[in-house]
Design a binder for these strands. Structure first.
Lengths: 356, 356
DNA sequence: ATGAAAGCGCTAACAA
DNA sequence: TTGTTAGCGCTTTCAT
């Protein structure tokens, strides 16, 4: 009886009193049935006598018993967990702080909970290999993985997606890419932003934002294309726009900048908000002296002064689309990505377009 | 390519199809050792011959093999996962959106990752039972649980904490309570906020915020106590302060309100921000006509116009303290809670105190 | 409708 | 230093 002795030793080590019920077998003994029956009863399977089932359930409830999910999931080879990874590649300070990502995470939590999945969150700091992603995909702990933001890891994600199907990414859709992406058309959004400013009378633009991430790079590209087509100069400013005191950076730069600039395309609402403050402090009126347009349409964009004109990304719809596609992929289907159209949200930080 | 050919030959001999390397046993066969040795080698145990270990690791790497964590954790009875639960009890809209909680979550993710733990996130909608918490604590999936915010579930948390030690909660510390709490002294913070306004000359205050959550209720209590001690009237307004268009609610109420009110104690920075907008729209100057103080010191408090005077809560330090205590409790120690002192952050939404 | 038995993939005590 | 063996706690045929 080495086995039994060993078992009791383990239990003693774990500080578990004899007689405490922690396994199906314990419940089975109490109910006078087999472990298999308890398993079926607790899982609500139909092939168990209704009366027996209720008796077993009562006993389980009485003891506050719940089946060990680790064991259950190992055996049934279905974890019921989705991994959510936020790569912090090009971020200056390596911590999860982006309010857009955090908000998306909130909605993902809602959608996944609704769908009966648990959410395993992982902050990843890429190190040049694909390890940050693969430790999640091949851990055996998750049925699928969602990546929030491509950061500067596009190639890594492509490579992993080649052999791991249940993977959905928030970010930029590049033509012909392998991995399933949900996101908005950032280039179109960038064009839309510049176009709105130009229509509203701006004649010299500046784009504010760090373009090392792919999405923002595309926003810049779109804005640049639109400006060029309209024969309007657009400069780009990215230094110090990721740090804590973005405000002071923007302030000094705007103060020194050619006064002819009359329109700011901000890469995100947060950047726009800092710009609003900086402009206020150096005494330039918005939208009179300078028009400002943001990106994301976070709730706080409506709260700034003046309220921020911005490009909307549908965060809730995006989360829903991601979860839906991931579920399909877990079922083996080959769900395609989704590029949502951005939309202009007019508020008071820009002038009314002369074309309206 | 001799290495590769040799490798394929071995694989053929072992009767393993390409890509079918899924278990320790598969690697063991390829390496010509036992599964136990592979386990030890991959876990980096010292009692394995260095040369063998490297050979085994090379093979594993080559096949992109990683041990199944579900199995490993079941067997070793140590999951390496911390559950993080956000109860949405008194929230009107049942979704994770509070920026304070989201920010705290971000920092928790940092701390836990740093400490080698995975984070399992669960949005919980309490239903009158303790099920929302116990499904996490007794799932066998986590080594410990962190609850972000007590919502209106204080009693439930107390009850669960009585039999489940590795539990740490962000929220309010009530004298004599069982569960380990980390938070700031909300009553002191409320007092501090009211005191600052009174010192700065305010003579009629209003507290803006839904007090069904315990923390905000304490902030209100503190503010009320301080106001009473100073002989200053303080009214309380909580209707519609949790919904989407908090702004319009505040706007209409402020417009109708007795013009004698000259100081607003906001329950959170977000509420304060809405108030700033509302005041701007009805043409009342801040801080000239009306002083406003927030609570939390979220990054965006520095971005409002005017910048928001507020009561600071140290989010990063709080996250660190929670993880530290949870680790201690997992080790069996009886780590006590932590009540941090709030601090006043003076900005431009209030006047300079006459006492300075 | 229920029980017996065989693992899920891994770790660790014990042997050699 | 390595192999053998016995489970971790559960689910699921296969019998009965």
């Amino acid at each position: 009886m080495t086995g039994k002795r060993n078992h009791e030793k383990l239990r003693a080590e774990a500080g578990i009193a004899a007689g405490e019920v922690r396994t199906l077998a314990d419940i089975a003994r109490l109910a006078g049935v087999s472990a298999g029956t308890v398993s079926r009863a607790l899982a609500g399977k139909s092939l168990v006598n209704a009366e027996t089932r209720e008796r077993i359930r009562a006993i389980a409830r009485q003891h506050g018993f719940r089946p060990n999910q680790m064991a259950s999931r190992l055996r049934s080879r279905r974890t019921g967990v989705i991994g959510v990874v936020i790569p912090l590649g090009h971020e200056k300070r390596q911590h999860v702080s982006d309010p857009f990502f955090l908000t998306l995470l909130g909605y993902l939590a809602d959608e996944l909970t609704e769908g009966g999945y648990d959410l395993m969150l992982s902050r990843a700091i890429p190190d040049g290999t694909s390890d940050w992603l693969e430790r999640m995909t091949s851990s055996g702990m998750v049925d699928g993985v969602i990546v929030i933001g491509q950061s500067d890891q596009f190639a890594v994600i492509e490579q992993v997606a080649a052999n791991y199907r249940p993977l959905v990414v928030w970010g930029h859709q590049r033509p012909g890419q392998t991995h399933c992406v949900v996101g908005t058309d950032n280039e179109a959004g960038g064009r839309m932003a510049a176009r709105h400013l130009i229509d509203a009378g701006a004649r010299r633009l500046v784009f504010l934002g760090d373009t090392s991430g792919m999405e923002i790079a595309m926003r810049f590209r779109g804005a640049a294309a639109e400006a060029e087509a309209a024969g309007i100069p657009l400069s780009h400013l990215s230094a110090g726009l990721a740090g804590e005191d973005m405000g002071s950076q923007i302030r000094s730069v705007l103060a020194e900048m050619d006064m002819a600039v009359d329109g700011i395309v901000a890469a995100t609402d947060l950047v726009a908000m800092s710009a609003l403050r900086a402009l206020h402090e150096i005494g330039r009126a918005v939208p009179g002296d300078m028009q400002v347009i943001g990106y994301d349409n976070l709730p706080l964009a409506a709260q700034t002064m003046p309220p921020l004109t911005t490009i909307r990304q549908e965060i809730a719809a995006g989360a829903r689309a991601m979860v839906e596609r991931l579920k399909a992929r877990i079922e083996g289907e080959n769900a395609p990505g989704l590029v949502m159209a951005p939309a202009l949200v007019r508020r008071a930080s820009t002038l009314t377009s002369t074309l309206d």
